[in-house]
């Protein structure tokens, strides 16, 4: 078993997926390829088509057009053979609130001949102390951990995780990220849909961005962030008016402009003809020094994944 994605061996191949609900076209020819052993994050604003895409891959819905193969099978026609090989972690939990974690895990374990031990999964998920507590009384983080434990009962080849760290405190988030990273390292193929871009930057081999039913970007997190224009962002000890911003831009680089980031004296040097370098920073520092302005923060370089994502889908989109 290897942690490296296996080139050429595709776990998911979707081509030209189209789906329409009434008059609304939610998928307009989406292509998606996930290699075995790869962790791919599917991103997009609400309504982008992520859920519909995943539901077609899971066999819950049929595409109006296009082809889908998951682990070499057609989810719509060969669901019976496919379902035991996929582990699903649903955002809503999918658990009766009167059930306890032990009951739910044992019930789902009985759907397999040789599943993982439910008690071992409870222990590993840190749910042993609440194994007999009704689901509705569990915290959001405990419910999420139960969802992941349920997805792992059948030792799936493909794990589909929907918002795996939503509702978790920072420590639980970190533990879940480590758990997912360990699964990925052990060779499990993982398709992750999330709005937590921190998870994506830390975990994903590749990111696929959907918007309005179309695939608008794909690549590794570093490829995606490298694709954005280099930036100089800074925070000053005092605000700059429009005239001062124009003066600063002219002093630092001809043709550039200083954009107000909208909060807390934060600004961005935009419209640079060439990537920022030491002279750019020196010019900025000199201009500020002459006016007694302290540069409280300075960041030079590529955009974060969140910034790049917002560039791709539009800043008005809800990430």
């Amino acid at each position: 078993m290897t942690g490296a994605p296996r080139d050429g061996e595709a776990a998911i191949v979707a081509e030209g997926l189209r789906k329409r609900y009434g008059t609304r076209e939610v998928l307009e020819g989406v292509d998606l390829r996930v290699l075995r052993g790869e962790l791919v994050a599917l991103l997009g604003p609400n309504g982008a088509g992520k859920t519909t895409t995943v539901e077609i891959l899971e066999g819950y819905r049929r595409a109006d057009a296009g082809t889908v193969r998951v682990l070499g099978l057609d989810p719509a026609r060969e669901g019976r053979a496919l379902r035991p090989r996929i582990g699903l972690m649903l955002q809503g939990g999918g658990v009766d609130p009167r059930s306890t974690p032990r009951e739910v895990l044992r019930l789902h374990a009985r759907l397999f001949r040789d599943p993982e031990d439910p008690d071992a999964l409870l222990e590993e998920a840190g749910l042993a102390p609440v194994a007999g507590t009704r689901y509705r009384r569990l915290s959001g983080g405990e419910q999420q951990r139960l969802g992941l434990a349920l997805a792992l009962l059948g030792r799936p080849e493909l794990l589909v995780l929907d918002e795996p760290t939503a509702g978790m405190d920072p420590a639980a988030k970190q533990a879940t990220r480590e758990r997912i990273a360990a699964l990925r390292a052990a060779g499990t193929t993982i398709l992750l849909t999330t709005h937590e871009l921190g998870d994506v930057e830390r975990l994903a081999d590749r990111v696929v961005v959907l918007d309005r039913g179309r695939l608008i970007a794909t690549g590794s997190p570093s490829e995606l962030t490298g694709g954005g224009s280099p930036r100089v962002r800074f925070r000053l000890s005092a605000p700059l008016d429009a005239a001062a911003r124009s003066e600063l831009a002219a002093a630092v680089a001809a043709g550039s402009r200083v954009a107000d980031d909208g909060a807390g004296n934060r600004y961005e040097l935009a419209g640079l003809a060439s990537p920022p370098d030491a002279r750019t920073v020196a010019a900025l520092a000199a201009w500020c020094g002459e006016r007694g302005l302290l540069i409280a923060e300075l960041r030079v370089g590529a955009a974060s994944l969140e910034e790049r994502y917002l560039e791709l889908v539009g800043r008005d989109a809800v990430a």
Binding site: P84, R110, A120, L152, G154, L183
Partner: peptide, 25 residues
């Protein structure tokens, strides 16, 4: 060191066994 949840995929239970489990639930 293989984490729980990784390995040869579990085989599905027989149809009657699954029906029995869900009916009991």
């Amino acid at each position: 060191t293989t984490p729980i949840g990784v390995g040869r995929p579990a085989r599905p239970a027989s149809w009657p066994a699954m029906v029995g489990a869900l009916t009991a639930q």
